[in-house]
Simulated scan of single mutants.
Amino acid sequence: MTSPPLAALRKEVAPALDLLTVPQVMARLQLGRSTVYDLIRTGQLASITLGRARRIPTQALTDFIRTRLAQEAA
């Protein structure tokens, strides 16, 4: 049995592993540090902790933005 090419694996795994730091989220949303942490604390923005580092999956940021857009449209 042969394994799939490395490029094919990267396409499947890469989106799931794309994590942002809090400063990167701050820049993308143009918000301050405490606001981003408040969004995380209140559960509006999903995140994971790796050791002492907080990371936000890009999919969580996308979901947050879509949810906010839907709320604004309603």
Rank of each mutant, 00 (worst) to 15 (best):
E72L: 14
Q30R: 15
G43Q: 04
R41C: 06
P4C: 09
P4V: 14
Q30T: 09
D18S: 15
L17I: 06
L39A: 10
D18H: 14
I48S: 07
A7R: 12
R66A: 14
S3W: 14
L17R: 12
L69S: 07
V22S: 07
A7Y: 11
S47H: 03
T49F: 01
F64C: 03
Q59V: 03
A7H: 12
F64A: 06
A14P: 11
L31C: 10
L29W: 05
Q59G: 02
P23I: 05
P15V: 09
L6S: 15
R28K: 14
T42G: 03
A7G: 08
A74T: 03
T62C: 06
L6K: 14
L45E: 04
L17W: 11
L31T: 00
S47Q: 03
P23V: 04
T62V: 08
P57E: 02
I40F: 06
P5A: 15
Q71M: 12
D18P: 02
E12A: 15
M26F: 07
L61H: 01
T58E: 06
L6C: 13
A27N: 07
L31P: 00
V36W: 04
L61N: 01
D63W: 02
E72D: 11
T67C: 09
R33I: 00
S34V: 07
R41D: 11
L17F: 13
E72F: 10
A53Y: 01
A74F: 03
G32C: 08
S34E: 09
D18N: 14
A60Y: 01
R52P: 02
L31H: 08
Y37L: 13
Q44G: 10
Q71I: 09
E72Y: 09
L19D: 01
L50I: 11
V36M: 05
I65A: 07
R28V: 06
R68L: 13
R33V: 00
V36R: 01
V22M: 10
D63G: 02
I40H: 02
Y37G: 04
P15Q: 10
G43S: 01
V22P: 05
F64E: 03
